[in-house]
Amino acid sequence: MKDLMGMMKQVGQMQARLKEMQDDLAKSEIEGQSGGGLVHLTVDGRGEVKRVRIDPSLMKPDEVEILEDLIVAAAADARAKVDNIMQTKMSEITGGLPLPPGMKLF
């Protein structure tokens, strides 16, 4: 019975650390880029877009599709960075405890 109580206490502590990590990450800003730095897209830790910065050299009417693709690529880069940060922080919280594939705690 002591083991179960100890495990429940650890789960509670893990949940508190997870909540703290999510709050901290939500306040952070992560930048993705594409086109060799011509497009920058900043997201918060939840992946919500906060800013987009586009180099003026890309503002050509006949290159709209290229610009659209670069924005999508910058967003994907930012999201991958957010995922990587979350995965690293989750590993710290769980003590490297392997989770089943596809299982997310956030």
Results as ranks from 00 to 15, higher is better:
D24N: 13
E68C: 04
E31Y: 01
A78Y: 00
M5V: 14
I54T: 01
A26N: 12
E68K: 05
Q22A: 14
M21P: 03
S91D: 13
R53H: 11
E63D: 11
E48V: 08
V11W: 07
G37A: 06
Q22L: 15
K9A: 15
G6V: 10
V72H: 04
G12Q: 15
E48D: 13
A80K: 14
G45S: 08
Q33S: 13
N84C: 09
D69G: 13
Q13E: 15
L70D: 01
A26W: 09
R46P: 00
D62G: 03
D24S: 13
T94E: 01
V64K: 06
A80Q: 13
K81F: 05
E65C: 02
L18D: 08
Q22Y: 00
V82A: 02
A73Y: 04
S57V: 14
G47R: 04
M5H: 12
S28Y: 05
M1K: 04
T94V: 07
M103S: 03
R53N: 11
L97I: 04
E92Y: 01
D62K: 03
P61E: 13
A80C: 05
I85S: 01
M86R: 09
D3R: 10
P100I: 06
K89G: 08
A75C: 08
K89D: 11
G36M: 07
M7I: 14
P56R: 11
L99T: 01
G96F: 00
A80H: 11
V52S: 08
A26P: 04
D62L: 03
K2V: 14
G47Q: 10
